[in-house]
Amino acid sequence: MENPHSATLTQEQGSSLWRDGWIRLCKNHLALFGLAVIAFFCVIALLTPWIAPYGYEQQDLQLGASPPSAAHWLGTDIFGRDMLTRIMYGSRVSLLVGFVATGVALVIGVLWGTVAGYAGGRVDAVMMRLVDILYALPFMIFIVLLMVVFGRNILLLFLAIGAVEWLTMARIVRGQVQNLRHQEFIEAAFSMGLSRWIIIRRHLIPNTLGPVIVYTTLTIPNVMLLEAFLSFLGLGIQPPQSSWGLLISHGVESMEEYPWLLVFPGLALSITLFALNFLGDGLRDALDPRASKD
């Protein structure tokens, strides 16, 4: 810190990394398309209460399940509820779970993994064994207990999912940091007398960004599916609320009779996941620090 030379060096590197990254991302059309799709879904989700064509629990038992028509663009489910409306409301839950729980997992996992990988030795051993313990606990019982003790709460669901998903993240980050730690540029930063936190923040974390971003784009869909799985088992969100995952798992049961109940929520989820993956790909390429040397 005392060395003015090193301070300007790291700052320069930091800012140019992000700026260069943005420029490179803009050149990647697929990634931009992914970003646009996600942004579009987010805007729709935000505006749903004002633009949805029907109420999400509004039934028409006489109508029952009907294929797409002028009145119901994506058809209706067996209660005669408009599928477009339900998918729009479902996107609110799914996207929120996806982003919030992944955010939780990201923050805990990256910090935990970096510290463990950087510290090494006994600290690393203790921290990673704690991860092992949490990996091994029966997840279902854990969720059931959370729901019973704290009541049903969608925030809790996010926390519970986040609390499980950070484990793999921590392992991946730790592996990366361990690999980086003894590389020349880190040793060089050490010899320059930079403090540990600066090294972690300025050098280790940015250099692990590639795998972290790849894994994050994989975690978001994973979290959405986990939410669906939990809801399906009765441990997640409550009807008549819905999420994409829940719509799909119900749609599967009648896929031969009412395919539109499966196809449309399936498409919504798949398109989002594809978009996320393209975006993650683009981000990874854009933020690769070594690529910036070329």
Partner: peptide
């Protein structure tokens, strides 16, 4: 679930 949703309404 299906019966409950119908009765709720």
């Amino acid at each position: 679930h299906k019966i409950a949703v119908a009765i709720q309404q």
